[in-house]
Amino acid sequence: MDNYLNRMRQQITKRLDFIGRACMLFVEAVRFIPTLPKQWFRVIDHAFSMGYLTLPIVGVLSFFIGAVLALETGYSLANFAGAQRYLGNIVGLSMCQELGPVMTALLLAGRVGSSITAEIASMKVYQEVDALTTMNIPPARVLVMPRLVAIAFMMPILTIFSVIIGWYGGAVVSQHVDFIHLDPNIYWRGLKSLVEFESVWDGLVKAEIFGLLIVLIACNEGLRTQGGPREIGRAVTRAVVASMVAVLFLNYFITKIQL
């Protein structure tokens, strides 16, 4: 029993320690924002690989999420005469407030978070980070800050893209599946009647927080890595799991605040 309590205490201390370090890293990185004019080339580089190259997969994912959402809901509503007219409203709101931001974030954790951790962890393991330190160049300045800025720019773009493609996926299914057969005009009118600028904005705010969080966790895990190459793999796993859990957990609370 005592043993169990001890282990639990250790686990909690470890989590708190992790959160504390991540916060410190964030503050340190933010302090280097004045060096941004000299580091645009890094920001653009990261924005390209984290954002632009992620667009296609975000598109595919969002299309099918919108599509399956319309399919499921349309099927359930088939028994209620006329209820399918509200498909646009349903898909419209769920995409922009929940599914768009959350799915984009989860995808980002897998695709971008993992590659950031792998890159930084290998720099740590092969002493490149040590070399930076001996050059009086803090890793937070050249490794973390540009990535945070890049994701801050790209996350809204990715999310809006995801939302629009998701809406479109819903529209395609509503129009062409035989047990729904909804006039696209009705779909889009319903969507417009319910989705306000504020709903989209709430989704974007959420996504922005998720994006920064994922990159921060990924950088932090990378910089904490110690030991040999095997640790790189472990760090990647930890970063992806931690950021996915953090996204889902935070999503609940942010949604509650935004309601």
């Binding site: 290998s122 720099m123 092969y126 002493q127 490149e128 040590d130 070399a131 001996t134």
Partner: peptide, 10 residues
């Protein structure tokens, strides 16, 4: 410092 492993930026 010249690191034993080089520690070059790969």
């Amino acid at each position: 410092m010249v690191f034993q492993s080089g520690a070059l930026f790969n």
